[in-house]
Amino acid sequence: MLKMFERLFSDKIATEPVTFTGSERYRGRIEGKCPAEALSDCAKACPVQAFQAKGDGEYTIDYRRCIFCGRCVEAAMKTAAEEAGLHHSSEDVMPVLMENARQITSEIIKEKLGRSLHVRHLDAGSCNACDFEMGAMSNPVYDLHRFGVHFDASPRHADLLMVTGVVTRNLEEALRKSYEAMPEPKLVLACGACAAGGNTYGESYAVVGAADKVVPVDLYVPGCPPRPSAMIAALLAAADMLSERL
Rank of each mutant, 00 (worst) to 15 (best):
A80W: 01
V119N: 01
A101Q: 04
H121C: 01
S89L: 06
Y63Q: 03
G135L: 12
F132L: 14
V96N: 02
G85L: 08
L113V: 12
P47N: 01
C69L: 04
C127Q: 07
D41F: 14
Q49R: 13
M77H: 14
F68A: 05
E91A: 13
E91H: 07
A80D: 09
E83P: 09
Q52M: 13
S116F: 10
K44H: 10
K112D: 06
R71A: 15
A84G: 11
Q49I: 04
V141L: 09
A53M: 11
G114M: 05
D56V: 09
G28T: 00
S89V: 02
T79R: 15
Y26K: 03
Y142I: 08
G22N: 01
M134D: 04
I67R: 02
T105S: 14
Y142T: 02
R115K: 14
D56S: 14
L122R: 08
C66Q: 04
Q103E: 15
H87W: 09
A45W: 05
K112Q: 10
E83C: 03
S90D: 13
A38R: 02
L86N: 04
N139V: 03
E111F: 06
H118D: 06
C66V: 07
M134W: 13
A101C: 14
D56M: 11
S40Y: 15
C130S: 02
E99M: 08
E37K: 10
Y63I: 08
K112T: 00
Q49K: 13
R29T: 08
G125K: 05
Q52I: 15
M137F: 04
A124C: 11
E31Q: 07
S138V: 09
L97K: 00
S89R: 00
V119R: 07
L97W: 00
C42F: 12
M94Q: 09
R65M: 10
S126H: 06
S126I: 03
A84M: 03
G85P: 05
D123G: 12
M134K: 05
E31C: 05
A129C: 12
P140G: 10
I109V: 08
R120E: 07
E31N: 03
K44I: 04
